[in-house]
Structure formats: structure tokens, C-alpha cells
Amino acid sequence: MPQISRGFHGRRSEGPSDRIPPGQHLVDDFPVLSAGPTPHTPLDEWTFTIQGGAEPASWTWDEFQALPSEEITTDIHCVTKWSKLDTVWKGVSLDTLLGLVDHDAGYLLAFCDGGYTTNLPLEHVTDGKAWIAYDYDGEALEPEHGGPARLLVPHLYFWKSAKWVRGFRLQDEDEPGFWESNGYHILGDPWLEQRYWGD
């Protein structure tokens, strides 16, 4: 059972400056942040869907598990100012998923169980920058951390790494998601401290 704590807790440390973005502090635990109840979608009802391409694409859990996967070791940075180093994930690259869909979109809007959405430019989720992760630290991803599967976009603030993700809608325009439409930055680069509108 992983340690769970609220978002602003955790042992504080400065950490190595080349790996901790400005305004962040290091934690050893893995804080849980949620905007609502934790969904518990049974795996036999889970699908991952990409809309907005020439044809809709959808995978069941078993089909998704059969896609080529990668192990990712990366640092993560939450807009509530904690950073965690060397987290280990396993999942399917968005390069793999988007390579299976015929499209000419420039953006995606990710949608999730529970109604959460987040928007991303495709240039920020391709070329090895983003995954749909289903394992964390060698174990199936816990529901509190977004399991059975979450987005992992570690170079952006972690609200972009949407928990309980169920698919994307490919779009021509960058449509703000749940937080981006009410104060949080449209992109969210932690190294530029893009926390709020206008940052």
C-alpha cells in the first residue's frame, strides 16, 4: 500500500536545482490530489477511445495491455509545489497510440471517469513526452493515483497527467480543460512557472 497524504504535505527538501523547477520543493511520499470521488471502473468495462480521427479508435483493457509498453523513470512536478524524483511507471506511449489513428489534429482534450478533462498540444505529447500509464513502481496503478490508467506528461505540471483517463478527443483548437478554463495556465510548464492565466 503506497503512502497517501494530502497535497501540501510531505517532507520538504530543496533537492538538486537542475531537477527541481522554481518554486517547488521535494517530497518523498506521493501526495494524492482529487477534485471528486475516486472512480472504480471494472476492467471489463474499461475502454480507451480516441475520437476525432478519420475513424474512431477504441481498445478494451486486454487490447490496451497488448499494445507495446515502455518503462519510464521520470521526475514529476505538481502545481501545488511538490516535486518527486525518479518515479517509475509503465505504460503505452502516445506516439504508439496516435500512430494508430489517421488524423491531422494539433491538440487533444483528454477525458476521464468522473468528468475531468485537460487539454494538450500534440507537440507536447509526442516524441517520447507522454504515456498512458497503468503501473507505478512495479505494481498496478492504485485508484487513488489514477488507476487503472492515467495520463503521464511529466514535463508539464501534474494536473495535465489526468487520473482515470478514458480517451482523447483530437481537435484543431486548444480547448481549455477543467482547470485551464478557470484560472490555471493553458500549458503549465513548471520550468517557466506557468501556474495561472497570464504567467
Binding site: 494530502r6 497535497g7 501540501f8 501526495p31 494524492v32 490530489l33 482529487s34 477534485a35 471528486g36 505538481c78 502545481v79 501545488t80 494536473w159 482547470w179 478557470n182 484560472g183 490555471y184
Partner: peptide, 11 residues
């Protein structure tokens, strides 16, 4: 009310 997200969400 959920207050430990990046913002506060009231449902």
C-alpha cells in the same frame, strides 16, 4: 467539497 486538488471543487 474537495479542497486538496489544485483548486477547490464543490459538488
Amino acid at each position: 467539497v474537495y479542497m486538496d486538488a489544485p483548486g477547490t471543487v464543490v459538488r
